[in-house]
Simulated assay, not measured.
Amino acid sequence: MRILFLTYQGDMAGSTNSIAFLCRGLAKRGHQVYLGIRKESLLWQLVEDSNVVRVPMSFGGKFDLNNWKQIRDVVRQHRIELINAQSSHDRYTSIFANKFFGLGTKIVHTRRQMPLSLGGPVQRFLYNHWTDGIVAVSRQVKEELVKLGFNEANIKVIHNGTPTEKYAHIDMHKTEALRSKFAISENDFVLGCVSRIKNQIQIIKALAHVEQPVKMIFCGIEATEEMKEIIAGYRAAHQVFFEGHVEGDNILPYYKLFDAKILASTMEGLSQSLLEAMALKVPVIATAYAGNLDLIEDRENGLLFEDGDIEKIAELIQRVRSDQSLRNTLIANGKITALQKFNIDRTIANYEEYFQSLVTEN
């Protein structure tokens, strides 16, 4: 197959790595894979030593005629059979370029996050009539799309995956440097959160109900004034650190510090950070919502709480800290879940099969 991937983002750690492994995997399987991205994006670097052909593109908005022409030129020059748009901007540009220039290529969109809203009848028309399929990364994403009026028969669930080799060469020198930075001792309990701003305030509030001191490390955000105010009122001697944005694979050494990982998001289609934690034998606590429900079976490979249940979050933090038998279960089953059930090779094979079915249909 001749496939063009489009993404104007390319700098969001979880989705960026997913797209990189997907492109590289399909290219390794013998398909001709082209990737339209900005040259300054992280994704440009992540595929530079592969068989993926990088195509520099500019992105000026949904109605950027220059971007439409760039898509047109790649499709015609390389006889592209299918375009997979990986971010919201590209869903429009791929549709409009295909129709405006009469390219006749298949159009598939990937939805990586829960759809909070998706416009009105015009957008539903574009998705239901001018595209050939939508990939939803979890059952919950599909269900929400259907509720919004999108054609159920047009939506294929293909779970995100994570690669085994990603975890083979973690820089433990960086981990030790971080351990020293945060002055982590053998008796400390370290709770980690790896995410952009997504309901971390619930975790901050929950720590006020946790009696034993916790070292809490947030990767991906800076403290807000509301967070600072809550932290200042803690009775327990918690230490809370905000690391801001952490580049690419530099995040993996942090997981080696964590005794547990928590995610309070209701946006995740299927969380890469939860997969990373599980693969690295870190017990996970997450919202019983969205793709977390596809990934986590409560008390088997992770712990779930209802969105907004602050006291439950606190209870689970204390439980995963004190119950060694439970920790052992979550660690063992979590690793199997991440590296076997949600292995990236399955994701790549499922995309390959789905794309092939669309390309070969009449």
Rank of each mutant, 00 (worst) to 15 (best):
I170F: 07
D171S: 10
H173R: 15
H173A: 13
E176C: 00
A177L: 07
A177F: 05
A177W: 01
L178K: 10
R179N: 03
S180R: 13
S180E: 14
F182L: 05
F182I: 07
A183Q: 14
A183P: 00
I184P: 02
S185D: 11
E186A: 12
E186G: 00
N187G: 15
F189Y: 13
V190S: 05
L191I: 10
L191D: 00
G192D: 04
C193Q: 12
C193F: 02
V194Q: 08
V194P: 09
V194H: 06
S195D: 09
S195Y: 05
S195L: 01
R196F: 12
R196E: 11
I197W: 07
I197Y: 10
N199P: 00
Q200H: 15
Q200E: 15
I201P: 02
I201L: 15
I201H: 14
Q202K: 07
Q202Y: 13
I204Y: 05
I204L: 05
A206L: 07
L207A: 04
A208E: 14
A208N: 11
A208Y: 10
H209W: 01
H209D: 05
V210F: 04
V210W: 07
E211S: 11
Q212R: 14
P213R: 08
V214Y: 04
V214T: 10
K215N: 05
K215H: 04
K215W: 00
M216C: 15
I217A: 01
I217Q: 03
I217Y: 01
F218R: 05
F218Q: 03
C219S: 09
E222N: 12
E222M: 05
A223M: 12
A223Y: 08
A223R: 08
A223E: 15
T224Y: 09
T224A: 07
E225N: 13
E226Y: 04
E226V: 15
E226A: 15
K228Y: 01
E229Y: 03
A232P: 02
G233F: 03
R235K: 15
R235I: 04
